[in-house]
Simulated assay, not measured.
Amino acid sequence: MAKVTLDRLRKVYPNGYVGVADASFEIEDGELLVLVGPSGCGKSTLLRMVAGLETISSGELSIGERRVNDMPPKDRDIAMVFQSYALYPHMTVADNLGFGLKLRGMGKAEIAERVGAAAAMLELEPLLQRKPAALSGGQRQRVALGRALVRQPQVFLLDEPLSNLDAKLRMGMRVEIARLHRQLGTTMIYVTHDQIEAMTLGQRIVVMKDGKIQQIDTPMALYNRPVNLFVATFLGSPKMNILWGQVDERDGDLSLRIGEGVALNLRPDAETREKVRAYVGRELTIGLRPEDMHLAEAGPDTLAAQVEVVEPVGNEAFLNLGCGGCDLVVRLPPYNLPRAGDTVHLSYAAERMHFFDRESELRL
């Protein structure tokens, strides 16, 4: 196990494109850290730089106490699990698990011991004599994890390892990976574009966009206090509702006028109130999570909205609504739902509002 330190790590391609811009953070010894962001944000590039599969343009990378910038991948004491399983089709599961150890000159007895331990941990023992073609997608992914596991590396690197699996298998494998990390206590860096994977697996999450780190924090800290509009809307499913309009003040009360005759009452906490007051007469962006809005009787603290689509998904339902030119989604219990075309009234948790500058998109 080892701590991984990135100090102003940068990747610039020959055409001048910046794939990763000055990434600086530490992954603690034994931590499971997730890199998340949309396609092309630089998360896999950053992971490959840690692995030694991408050259580092500038900055310092350390694994444990060693600077590894120019060290070949085989000497970094890391193991990587890729999106594709990359198993040898002509080898059995047992041979696939032990092949890397055989290449390193390890003795047969130790290889057998390590393969047996990994197979037991991943419930692969009945499959050891099968070949990859006779395995399901989930079983193949467990073999790929086991091949990394037998190496007993200081750091595990996982690059979107579940993206080829269906939804049910992904859920099961998320639990498997979390359990493995708890048992092994090994440092893990996990890359995904799936914010649900990021939220459920990561002890901390690094959110990236356009090669730049947007925010680093625990999952719920990111969810509750996103530093900007991108983080706010990227994390959460359905994503955060965004409303915008002009801030008005009357008799000391603040409101957001989001359309003709449509206003949202603002009750920011004492710390935020003066920041919001500075926007009186100017535009401001407000964020509200789908679970922070509810159906209610018409009243001064409600919004009128028209139901556009109703999405019942079993244990809950999502209402897609239009309100003052803004699109909203509300999460509800799946009972007594309105129909498309109905006009409904929404109450909202004013204390759960998020406030963002309209131009910079930064949190107030």
Rank of each mutant, 00 (worst) to 15 (best):
residue 341 G to C: 04
residue 122 L to Q: 03
residue 194 D to E: 10
residue 192 T to A: 12
residue 134 A to K: 15
residue 179 R to A: 10
residue 100 G to T: 08
residue 41 C to Q: 09
residue 202 G to W: 00
residue 270 A to G: 11
residue 261 G to A: 09
residue 211 G to Q: 04
residue 93 V to F: 06
residue 15 N to V: 03
residue 22 D to G: 09
residue 52 G to F: 06
residue 297 E to T: 14
residue 198 A to S: 10
residue 123 E to R: 15
residue 267 R to Q: 13
residue 130 R to G: 12
residue 322 G to H: 07
residue 141 Q to S: 05
residue 203 Q to F: 11
residue 76 R to V: 10
residue 189 I to T: 05
residue 153 P to R: 01
residue 145 L to P: 08
residue 214 Q to K: 05
residue 51 A to Y: 01
residue 249 E to M: 13
residue 16 G to H: 09
residue 26 E to M: 14
residue 275 K to Q: 13
residue 212 K to V: 14
residue 19 G to E: 04
residue 278 A to F: 06
residue 115 V to W: 00
residue 269 D to E: 14
residue 313 V to C: 01
residue 228 N to Y: 02
residue 231 V to Q: 01
residue 22 D to V: 10
residue 200 T to W: 08
residue 254 L to Y: 09
residue 136 S to E: 05
residue 311 E to K: 12
residue 192 T to E: 12
residue 99 F to G: 05
residue 276 V to I: 04
residue 187 T to Y: 08
residue 266 L to W: 00
residue 314 G to T: 07
residue 111 I to T: 07
residue 80 M to A: 05
residue 145 L to A: 06
residue 305 A to E: 01
residue 240 M to C: 04
residue 204 R to H: 13
residue 174 R to P: 06
residue 158 L to Y: 14
residue 171 M to V: 15
residue 234 F to T: 02
residue 180 L to K: 00
residue 247 V to H: 07
residue 119 A to Y: 02
residue 37 G to S: 06
residue 78 I to E: 05
residue 42 G to F: 03
residue 231 V to G: 00
residue 358 R to A: 12
residue 178 A to E: 06
residue 113 E to H: 12
residue 178 A to P: 10
residue 115 V to T: 13
residue 72 P to Q: 12
residue 114 R to P: 02
residue 227 V to H: 08
residue 331 R to I: 10
